[in-house]
Amino acid sequence: MAKLNSSDIAIKVTAVNKSYIVGKKKTPALENINLTIQAGTLFGLIGPDGSGKTSLFRILTSLLLPDSGEIWVDGLNVITEYKNLRKRIGYMPGKFSLYTDLTIKENLDFFASLFGTTFEENYDLIKDLYVQIEPFKDRRAGQLSGGMKQKLALCCALIHRPTILFLDEPTTGVDAVSRKEFWEILQSLKKEGITILVSTPYMDEATLCDQVALIQEGKILDVDTPAQMVNKFTNPIYAVKGANMLLLLRELEKDPSVERIYPFGEHHHLVMKEKDVLPVLPLGVTINKIKPNIEDLFIHLMQHHE
């Protein structure tokens, strides 16, 4: 189909608010969300559980109505043109939502028929994924391992060749190897021209996206490319390592020149208040200046918002 005007924008979200009634209190789930996502990007929505990722996904996929705001997805108004929208998008919810009593093949055939297509028609799109689960095509989905369930769910979400793919926390609870494989699959799907919006609580996955939005407590902290984003972290940051890491942490926490110190893998990340000032370090402690990563920035932004 010929591209319509302004079709380079896949998703446009303006001033979206959503709140739920919990008990008798109104709890905001999303506050003034603004997002523009270019077509063909792999966009990551990064934030911890309960930050509003799922609510935003459900609004974008026409499953929930926002309290206010305007949303355009693939040139369609999510609220009024939901019927057309539902033909074009693919959605993989965070919870495994296929039929556990149907086999792999039966699930695929069923979801294909939902969209008025067949498994064979779009086979080339899911081929790479499908061959990995094909040996088990007659096994019921409920008896598959986590990794295979996830691949099947992705196949089902792709079966009608959607223009935009929404993946809600596809890698949560998945081991590091399967996660890596999953991201490789997403890269190849991107090459097919599908816009992908993926949410994740794993900060390290941010670098695998073209663009990311950090979300926390229903608010978007920042939107940018991962590379640009970390440049916004202006405080000097160092990795320190000593023989007794716990003691080192407790010591440096007390230092007034230290903005923040927290464990980060084998090191502690040490954020200083000013440039060229270093804390007094115990003997034998190594210190190296490092480039901040998304997780450093997220911690920084979280504390600034509070």
Binding site: L63, R86, F96, F111, F115
Partner: peptide
């Protein structure tokens, strides 16, 4: 309950 409805609702059925 099982979340299947979420997918059904985002489809054109």
């Amino acid at each position: 309950e099982l979340g299947n409805m979420e997918i059904l609702l985002t489809s054109p059925i």
